[in-house]
Simulated assay, not measured.
Amino acid sequence: MSAPCQPEDVVEMLRDEGLVDLPAGAGADTDLFDAGLDSMAVMQLIVIVEEKWGVALGAADAHRDALGTPARLAETINARR
């Protein structure tokens, strides 16, 4: 099994993909919805997570508690592995 996903991995992926406008000091607790994560970006994020980490996220995961911050998204990814 590969290393667990870390919040820093999520921040790097979000910067690479340009899904949200992360502030310069974005970290584990940055609110992704405040940074521009909307319903279309959530759908793109679900596809990217599956491609990058091999984790299938579904509609039940498309909410703030599961992916509202890099830390929460990393936890969700790791829980689905």
Results as ranks from 00 to 15, higher is better:
residue 32 L to H: 00
residue 68 G to R: 01
residue 20 V to Y: 00
residue 20 V to E: 07
residue 31 D to P: 13
residue 71 A to H: 04
residue 33 F to Q: 08
residue 32 L to C: 01
residue 45 L to S: 12
residue 62 A to E: 03
residue 49 V to I: 15
residue 39 S to W: 05
residue 30 T to Q: 08
residue 25 G to H: 12
residue 56 A to R: 14
residue 49 V to L: 14
residue 44 Q to H: 14
residue 47 V to M: 15
residue 58 G to T: 14
residue 7 P to G: 02
residue 11 V to D: 03
residue 77 I to E: 04
residue 26 A to V: 07
residue 70 P to S: 05
residue 43 M to G: 12
residue 46 I to Y: 00
residue 76 T to M: 05
residue 67 L to M: 15
residue 38 D to I: 03
residue 78 N to K: 02
residue 1 M to D: 08
residue 67 L to P: 08
residue 55 V to M: 01
residue 35 A to L: 00
residue 64 R to C: 00
residue 26 A to T: 05
residue 55 V to N: 01
residue 13 M to S: 02
residue 71 A to L: 10
residue 68 G to Y: 04
residue 61 D to G: 05
residue 69 T to I: 02
residue 35 A to N: 04
residue 66 A to L: 11
residue 42 V to T: 13
residue 47 V to N: 15
residue 54 G to P: 10
residue 31 D to Y: 11
residue 3 A to C: 12
residue 21 D to Q: 14
residue 65 D to G: 15
residue 38 D to H: 11
residue 72 R to W: 01
residue 80 R to P: 01
residue 52 K to T: 15
residue 62 A to S: 14
residue 5 C to R: 09
residue 70 P to R: 07
residue 64 R to F: 13
residue 4 P to V: 03
residue 5 C to P: 03
residue 58 G to A: 13
residue 49 V to N: 05
residue 55 V to P: 02
